[in-house]
Design a protein around this nucleic acid. Sequence first.
DNA 1: CTGGATCCCTCACGATACTG
DNA 2: CAGTATCGTGAGGGATCCAG
Lengths: 213, 213
Amino acid sequence: MTKREYGQFCGLARAVEIVGERWALLIIRDLFVGPRRYTDLRRGLPRIPTNILSARLKELEATGVVSRRVLPRPDGSIVYELTEYGNQLEPVVLGLGRWGAKSLGEPRPDEIVTPASLIMAMRTTFHREAADGLTIGYEIRVGDIVLHVRIDNGSLKVAEGALPNADLVIETEPALGALMAREITPAEAVDGGIVTLTGDPALLDTFVDLFSI
Amino acid sequence: MTKREYGQFCGLARAVEIVGERWALLIIRDLFVGPRRYTDLRRGLPRIPTNILSARLKELEATGVVSRRVLPRPDGSIVYELTEYGNQLEPVVLGLGRWGAKSLGEPRPDEIVTPASLIMAMRTTFHREAADGLTIGYEIRVGDIVLHVRIDNGSLKVAEGALPNADLVIETEPALGALMAREITPAEAVDGGIVTLTGDPALLDTFVDLFSI
DNA sequence: CTGGATCCCTCACGATACTG
DNA sequence: CAGTATCGTGAGGGATCCAG
């Protein structure tokens, strides 16, 4: 067999031949957060078999989506990162994530939230218009994941790690989604104990404006 | 096992659980052209095994992407169509198609062009701005595929079938891509015999403006 | 420790034949 | 026309092992 092709001269067919294999888009999602080492990828995708991760990285490298780079000494470790071509997938990945989020429902018993998925969720739901002229620092904690979210004059920066001087620290559960979907109000979320705040509570309303679905 | 899940509470993960299975997005691409019967889908996807088509349709129906409808008598046949939720995939599908088109290269020996892929290609590459105030009818022939393309005051309508009173009939090969990528000029395409025109040749320049990559 | 390679097993997929 | 039935194969799942 000719290696899993669709036999159609079509952009969409070619795209799914490249990034449509199982796990490929989740690897790419993690790489959108930044360059990652093999082990970082495994940590972010706990259920991926190591041979599959290895195979996907090779394929994505061969198709020009991902590049493999050896860090300069003394570190000398290997990182994978998106190429320019791979980066062009951003609107598609965000769009797919937004579409799929509508079918999320409640977390299934064995479903986890990873730092990369949370970071992409923040980027997906961010409303640039609502951020105009704002400068705020949030720290988000979901389980043992800690993110810092900085709104800097309308632009968004999200990354892993704490934010020491955050204006507001939001501690919550995966049900954060209900808040962002405006199914409940910020006040209800606080009263119901779904979120715990440290800092200026008024900034939670701003948060919902910035990241609502 | 729990039926091919990724174990992540993440919009992107859910999306690929729903439409990431093999062949699913190509089925959806064909349904974007309009409701289709089982046999229509098979014709548009010659390499799909019939049991897989059957399985995908069931899955997509269960996840609310596709709906199955029995046509009123006396026809009584069955058509599949996208639900409202399925239709919301349009920007993603077009975006993926545009991204994948950059890796198309030359058609492989066994690759075919289908009506649906051509129609989606036209929609993908259409520039609304370039169509402002225009009203033109094109007929496109690629192999034995015949499409009609109507620009109606800036809006685009593409469908299968001839256009009797077309302002310009363009007959070409799959290498049409080279023209749309502006790798060659319209004049070169005509001189080189890549396209054959019937009607007002000046409208080929307009065509390239409307559908270039 | 990181960055994989190797083994085995299973099930989703592929090809084809057949049916209401 | 609209699928179901059957059966073989190989990609993916899971565990383990290994080199630098």
